[in-house]
Every structure is written in structure tokens, then in C-alpha cells.
Design a protein around this nucleic acid. Structure first.
Lengths: 157, 157
DNA sequence: TATTGTTATACTCTATAACTATA
DNA sequence: TATAGTTATAGAGTATAACAATA
């Protein structure tokens, strides 16, 4: 029991549910509101200082132009830094600006607080099980090697 | 251990990771590609035939205008039906059109298949734990009473 | 008056196609 | 030639504000 397909079906049902219940909080909880993709990009850069645009695109399942535009918005807002690398001048090194660090902290704390309220109603044992499952999923979905970059989705013709 | 805040932090880290790893498949795997919100709306209507626009908006954390536009796109594509209710002519009854049923099945199967490949590498016991956690989360995040409708996000001024 | 939904408008997200610069 | 990224363009997603219709 719990075949890969069973597990996939459960995930596909429940992950969007949680994702979308979080979003209004991320967007509105603070002065410095963020869209979910902006939030995700900042969270990624927080742990991967110096990442390239391709890294971000791979992590988030975006094409390169989409990632470029997303990051550009964050650079314009002064939340992310973007520099050309001296060792390979085609590539870019992304980082979090001080204001970006403040923003991610504020939004993260507000969102965690909101989420916590819903989770407080769960039995502690269930919460522990959820934490365990999240760690397994993290291992399965965020391998150390950065994700494959999607050049084009194609496929439908 | 596993306080509500710990659990919230884990969820906030991992849920987007899984969400975004799924998206390229939903968008591109089949002729009849769907955006994640379109996919989510169809999945919801599949289980809540006759739902109102407010129901959809509440479920997905959208404002009413956003839900209206999202559903409108699906109606135009012939995937969703929309009728005025006779008992309360302000409200609308949404349903899935035959073509919508085909589409959701095709996209769902393709996405489950793709997700399964990643999950196949996990130990079966881990998968069982994930399935269990998903069921707990579903209970916590999709109460029988439909979600609160957000009229406006406001909050930042 | 309050509720349900739509329309108007603006900005972000995302894609493909075509391009530039560097390797 | 191949790779990293940007620009151009287009369509979907999302919000607020203002409106219409119904209760």
C-alpha cells in the first residue's frame, strides 16, 4: 500500500490546497507584500547566495525569460542584487539586498504566524508526522544538484 | 517538539517546492494544457458540482473578480458550465462540461505519472508517511464548511 | 441595505521567438 | 557552435475600484 501513484494523487490533491491557503497572507500580511513567485525566489536566494538565473529557473520550474523578468522586478524594487560574474561574463550572480532580507523576514514571520493558527488545532503527533513527511519530500524534490533547466515546454502540437 | 510554528516553517519551505516541480507537467504534458489555477478550479468543481463563484474564490484564496475571470476563461474554452440559479438569481451554478471532464482526466493522469517517477525512488514506508500527512493536512485545510471569502486583501497602508 | 457577480484598469506571471554577448 | 541571459510580444492571473442585478 502507498504505491507511487497513490502518493502522487494525494500530493496533487493536497499541495495546491495548502499553497493557496497561504497565498493571501504572503500577498497582504505586510506593507512589503510579495507574490508567491517573488517569495519563492527570495527564499531560494536566501539559501543559495550567488546563484545564477538558470539556477532560479531550474528550482522554480520556470523558463529563463520568465525567471529573468521575475528577478528583474525584485532588482528594481531593491530586494535582490544582480552582478555579472568575472569568471564567466555570460553568467550572473544573484544575491539578497538588505531590504530584501528585511522583507523576507517580515513576510515569512507573518505567514508562519498565520499558518500556525491553523496548525494549532492539530494533535501534536499529527504535526510531528507532517514535519517528518515534509523532510522526506524536501529530500525527494530538492536534490543537491540543481534542477534541470527547462528551455522550452513544447510537447503539445 | 513539532510546535505549530515549526510545522508552519516546514510547510512554507517545502510546499512551494513540490508545487513548482509539478507545474511544468500540468502546463505542457498534454495537448489540453492547463495553468495551475485552472487545474485547481477544475479539480474543485469535480468534487463540488454546482458550486458558486464565491465557493471557488474561497477555496482558492482568490478575490471574486479574479475567480470570475479565471472561470470565464474555462467557460470560453468549453470546459466549465455556468448557469444562473433559479432560487437565487444573483448566484451562479458552476459545473464541468464533458470536454472539461476529459481534460482534467488527461492532465491529471499525465501529472500523476510524472510525479510517480520521482516518488518511486522513495522507500515505501516514507511514501506511506507522506500519504498519511497529506490526509491530515487535507482535514486541516479543507474543512467541510467552505472557506471564508476574501472581499479585499487590504491590510497594507 | 447587503450580497453576488461582472466590468474596467493596471500590474505581475509566464510562455515562445528572436536577439546579444561570451565561451 | 553552444550557453547565459535579455528583449519583444502576447495571453493568463491577480488585485482594487466601480458597477449592476437581485434579495
Amino acid at each position: 500500500m502507498a504505491s507511487p501513484r497513490d502518493c502522487a494523487r494525494e500530493l496533487l490533491d493536497v499541495i495546491p490546497l495548502v499553497m493557496w491557503s497561504v497565498r493571501p497572507g504572503v500577498r497582504a500580511n505586510v506593507q512589503r507584500h510579495l507574490s508567491m513567485p517573488q517569495f519563492g525566489a527570495l527564499m531560494y536566494l536566501r539559501r543559495h547566495e550567488g546563484a545564477s538565473l538558470s539556477d532560479v529557473a531550474g528550482h522554480m520550474g520556470l523558463t529563463l525569460p520568465s525567471a529573468s523578468k521575475l528577478i528583474d522586478g525584485l532588482v528594481v524594487r531593491g530586494l535582490v542584487t544582480r552582478e555579472t560574474r568575472s569568471d564567466d561574463r555570460r553568467r550572473v550572480a544573484l544575491g539578497i539586498a538588505p531590504d530584501g532580507r528585511d522583507t523576507i523576514r517580515a513576510v515569512r514571520e507573518a505567514t508562519v504566524a498565520e499558518l500556525s493558527e491553523r496548525l494549532a488545532a492539530m494533535p501534536a503527533a499529527d504535526r510531528a508526522a507532517v514535519v517528518g513527511a515534509m523532510r522526506m519530500l524536501r529530500a525527494a524534490f530538492a536534490p543537491e544538484r540543481p534542477g534541470q533547466l527547462v528551455r522550452s515546454l513544447g510537447g503539445s502540437r
